[in-house]
Amino acid sequence: MKKSLLIGATALALTLASPFSQAHRVWIKPSTTSVSGDSEWITFDVAVANGIFHPDHFAYPAERLSVVSPSGNPVDIQNQQKLRYRSVFDVELTESGTYKVFNASQSLVAFWKDEDGERHFWPGRGKTGTVEEFYQAVPQDADDLNVMETANRLETYVTLGAPTADNNKLTGKGLELKALTHPNDAYTGEPIDFQFFMSGDKAQGTKVIVVKDGEKYRDTAGGVEVTADKEGKISLQFDEPGMYWLEAEYEDDKAKAPAKKRRASYVLVFEVLPL
């Protein structure tokens, strides 16, 4: 029993820390992305799931998310509830402009096998691994020791009134998306341009997959796969309006010791509106 719990926890840590290597997808899905009026509420689902956007696996803890208002102030998540397969919460939009709902994390991670051949993962569920802790916690002579710098970012944007860009500034940490097309100004039949940056540098070769809502009703998953050019740019265009899930992955060997690789993921949920 204890062991299976541990394995469960490890699987969970992997899922949260690295959606990269997992089939599971993580998303924050707003009920709508562009609203009108003096103020308005938007309700959100946040989950780690197999489906887009079908919660069937694990409720992502909403308390890990931050919300920033158009003027840069923190906004409280309200009516938060963790359900079986998804967490739900509301955000009240009282300022005109674009709000960002996100989680960003960086960690040193390590995988290895012990003498019995059992796989281990460090730093464990929801924890951030530092270099000092790494030397204490991870056996340096372990078999198949794989050490990486990881960065994961999960975002969605919602707008009251006209979209604003102040919430889309780069922090220089992990894989980030610069919205050349505002995510709340994406329409069918028009190019939607994004640019990726890894630790502040143009992220050439970033692999991107985009999947439209309603995946379970399609025989083929129907995702679009593109790779960022040398400027880190991609250009998308869609005929069908709807909610879209975008996941970007980047990997290179420009890591600092003890890591040998750096690996980052970025997830955006955005709505393509019809005209």
Binding site: S34, V35, S36, G37, D38, E40, T159, G161, A162, P163, D185, Y187, L273, P274, L275
Partner: peptide
């Protein structure tokens, strides 16, 4: 004003600003 966005063409061209 909550439903002005449903005039979605006008909302984009004018209303939201």
């Amino acid at each position: 004003e909550k439903w002005l966005k449903d005039l979605r063409m006008w909302w984009r061209r004018s209303g939201r600003s």
